[in-house]
Every structure is written in C-alpha cells, then in structure tokens.
C-alpha cells in the first residue's frame, strides 16, 4: 500500500473543513474574544446585539468571548486525551495482536475490563477525589479521560494487527529474519494507519464529550472557560427555562459540530478500509441520461434500452 488516500467525497471535505475551522478557533479564539470572558462589567441578560453578538450572561459576562475563549480548553483537552488514549491503544492493542499467546490474553483482558466498566461513572469517581487544584489543570483532566477511553481503540487495533500478522508479506519478512521491531514498524504500522486514524477520531470525539460532561456536572474548575462550563453556568442560572437560548445553545452547537466533523471524516476512512462502502452509484440524472430508468437493484440487472424506447416509457410511466 502506498500513501493513504482518503476518498475525496463531499462528506469528507465538509468534515475536514469543520475540523479546520474549529482548530483555527482553538488557536486564535482567545485573541479574537472582544472582552474578558470572566469580566462582569456589562448589563446582565442582554439579548444578542451588535456589541454583544451572543448577548450577556446573568452575571453580565459577554457570551461570545466565553465561546471563543472556551474553544481552546475544550479542544486542547480533547486533543491531549485523544492522543494519549490512542497511544495507549497502540501500545496495548498492537502488542497484544502481534505477540499473541499469554501476552495477548493478559492485554486483551485488560482492555476488555476497561471496556466493560462504564466510562463516565468511573470518570466521575476518579475526578471527585481530585483536589480542586488539579481539577483546573487541563492536562490532568485529559490524562484521566484518556484512561477511560483507550480500550475501544486497543480492541480494534488488536484485531487489525492480528489479521495483518498472518498475511503473506509479514510472514515473508519473518522468514527472511527481520527483527520483530522492524516488522512492526516497517510492515505492520503503515497498514494500521487507516484503523488508527479512525480510532483517533473516535477517542477525540469521546474525549470532547467526556470533558464537556465533567465540566457541565461541575467536576472541573468552573473558572476555566470551556464549552462545558458555559453550559454549567447556563444551567445553574436556569438559562434554558428562561428562554436564554443564546447562552446555552451556541456552546452545544459547537460541540456537536466538532463531533459531526470528526464523524464525517471517519466516513471517508471507513470507505477506505471497506471498499464495498465506496459509492459506485449514479445520480438519478446521470442514470436518465444513459437510459437507466431506475436505481439498479439486486437481481434485476438493468437492460439498456434504445433511446426511443426510453422516451416512450417515461411518458407512459405515471411517475
């Protein structure tokens, strides 16, 4: 396999653009924020206006500034957690799949145990014991999230490694006496890339959800601005019931958009991994042009008719 080529479908392009947009927001968001997100020097409960695009909170804070500033913490924690979890997943999954035997039994058990324990309750338990100083540390939170989120990736990677391990080209390098490390790095790793990318996307998705949830519950420092704390304050001040949609809807939409972007890119990876998912179909207009009245159906191979037959058929058909 040469370089990984992700099919360039509209879905993937849209997803990548969304992720690009929020990555940019992560980098420049805090600088773009018009005001200090914590400053309470505006009138409370302002509705959106030219000076406050998203209005103000009941404490008189500028919501737009909170959204822009909060992007960084949210995305950084998600990235840290996603990367660490993926690293753990590689370490455990690839080793288990490649080594086999006892090592595989032990490592698989480890990841299966972590898969079976429900993540969020465990996260809440661990987090509730953290001293409040640590709760404001994005990296500590990220690490804890990664601890509950690596197991799925490990499982997928193990399965993929096992199937690769038994393929001819790996067998061949083993026979010619290449070292295990070299086989792993040079032969197996490149073929794991698509699975790895997909697992990274999912762990990031999971991490955003977990972080935002912890913040929403009040288990991270409420003074660090992220989209979850915005929702926490909005909920605490009854914004949903007071119809202050501009307070709690924007952070929720941002979270959902980042997630959608990741999922859309993953469609592309799925289609790469499983060629049967790739679209080979034609649009209705293309079909009509070549004289195929309907979508091809299994068991009814289309018959191309002569042009005059098509026109006659299409005028006869009620649709």
């Amino acid at each position: 396999m040469s370089a990984v080529q992700i099919p360039k479908s509209p879905k993937v392009i849209l997803g990548a653009s969304i992720i690009g947009f929020f990555t940019l927001m992560m980098i420049v968001g805090p600088y773009l924020a018009p005001y200090d997100p914590s400053a309470t020097n505006f009138a409370p409960n302002l509705t959106p206006s030219a000076s406050h695009w998203l209005g103000t909170t009941s404490l008189g804070q500028d919501i737009m500034s909170q959204l822009l500033t909060g992007a960084r913490a949210t995305m950084v924690v998600a990235l840290v957690a996603g990367l660490v979890a993926t690293f753990l997943a590689i370490a455990v999954g690839v080793a288990a799949g490649y080594l086999g035997g006892r090592a595989d039994d032990g490592l698989s058990l480890l990841s299966n145990v972590f898969l079976a324990i429900p993540g969020l309750p465990l996260l809440i338990v661990i987090d509730s014991y953290l001293p409040s100083g640590e709760r404001s540390n994005a990296f500590v939170i990220g690490l804890i999230i990664s601890l509950t989120g690596w197991a799925w990736g490990a499982r997928v990677l193990r399965a993929q490694t096992m199937s690769l391990r038994n393929r001819d080209f790996v067998e061949a390098s083993r026979i010619i006496g290449e070292s295990r490390t070299r086989i792993m790095v040079a032969e197996i790793a490149p073929n794991l890339l698509p699975v790895l990318a997909s697992s990274l996307l999912f762990t990031i998705l999971y991490s955003i959800g977990a972080y935002v949830t912890l913040a929403y519950v009040g288990l991270t420092s409420t003074s660090v601005w992220n989209w979850g704390t915005m929702l926490y304050w909005a909920q605490a001040n009854n914004a949903p019931l007071s119809n202050e949609w501009y307070w709690f809807v924007p952070p929720g939409i941002c979270i959902a958009l980042v997630g959608t972007g990741l999922a859309l890119v993953n469609f592309g990876i799925d289609e790469f991994i499983n060629p049967r998912l790739r679209e080979g179909g034609l649009s209705a207009r293309q079909r009509r042009r070549i004289g195929m009245p309907r979508r091809p159906r299994l068991g009814f191979t289309p018959v191309r008719r002569l042009p005059e037959t098509i026109t006659r058929l299409s005028t006869m058909e009620p649709r």
């Binding site: 879905k11 849209l14 998705l205 959800g209 935002v212 949830t213 929403y216 929702l231 909920q235 949903p240 019931l241 119809n243 949609w245 709690f248 809807v249 929720g252 979270i255 959902a256 958009l257 980042v258 997630g259 959608t260 990741l262 999922a263 859309l264 469609f267 679209e279 179909g281 034609l282 979508r295």
Partner: peptide, 29 residues
C-alpha cells in the same frame, strides 16, 4: 443504498455528536 435517503446520514451524525444532556435541554425547552 444510493437513494436520496443517503443524504440524511450526515444529519444523523449531528445528533450523535450532540451531548445527551444538551439535546435533552433543547428538547425540554
């Protein structure tokens, strides 16, 4: 597959990506 319903797929992933509690809040509202 390949029918116009396929275009609904990105929309469903949006719902999947929304945190449960946020969707709940919006629905409640």
């Amino acid at each position: 597959r390949g029918s116009r319903f396929d275009s609904l797929i990105p929309l469903t992933t949006f719902f999947q990506a929304v945190p449960y509690f946020f969707l709940g809040t919006v629905m409640l509202l």
